[in-house]
Amino acid sequence: MKIKSEFLPYLLILPAFAYLMFFVGYPLAQALYLAFTQNGAFSLATVRRAISDYYFWTALKYTLGLAAIIVPTQVILALVLALVMNKSFKGRDLSIYALVIPLTISDVAAGLIWYSMLSPYGFLNKLLMNIGILDNPIYFFGYQFRHMEFLAIVLAELWRATAIVFVIILAGLQMISNEYLEAAEVFGATYWIKLRRIVIPLLKPSIQSALIIRTLFAMQVFGIVWILAGRDIPILAGEGFYQLTEIKDYGVASIYALVIAGLSILLGALYIKFMKAEYLEVKR
């Protein structure tokens, strides 16, 4: 048997592509079916049931709120770290290794690790009390300390997921030819001008992909919140999980899934529209 070589690449890609299409297409169709039908006919009953729940809007608010605080902070933090790690200094490689450790740590583990830092008998409280800064522990956990729980989640997420932004931006930074910067320097640019006029514009594609990745994953945030706050801080994925495993309401769970998908597509599209780097798109 001889396969015509022009079809070969398609043939090689097909299995992977079909697999992915199935695992995306089928759940999407199923979710739409579960969300918008009742007894085989179109119905908005499930939608009404979902959005009349206090938790729905709270989850939406907290999910977006967490993302709005965490993602920009991560990008700025990662940018600073990448700029520093792009210099050459003693111990640079070791520092980079340390910074990427969280890449491999799960959200559940990260939640637990930060619990050991922030619990009433945790490291931070005991340290601050022993050196005399605090008299009583700061309480981070429990429904009555919801704002502190929020802060704990932010800290843990910054700790866990800044690494991915860092590697993307550092890789982008290393792709910028040194001559671009030296040219700017020769023509009189200071460090800040170089950063603002050369480095950041050239990093735009990297920053854009980091922003997209982080924002979309922030829409799905689950383990870290579930460990640190449970339903004190409701989030979309958590509510979907709760509806599915505790209430067994597949319809409402599907609506949470669809809201996450819808937000992801919307935000992804917005980023691509408003952050495009014009110079990469010009035709030769």
Binding site: A16, F17, L20, F23, V24, Y26, P27, L28, Q30, A31, L34, I212, I213, L216, M219, Q220, F222, L236, A237, G240, F241, L244, Y250, A253, S254, Y256, A257, L258, I260, A261, S264, G268
Partner: peptide, 20 residues
Amino acid sequence: SIVALRMFPIPVMAIPLVIL
């Protein structure tokens, strides 16, 4: 499109998958 599929949210996939 493979990059886009990489971004597809996992919860969306998991919840309806239960039924299948």
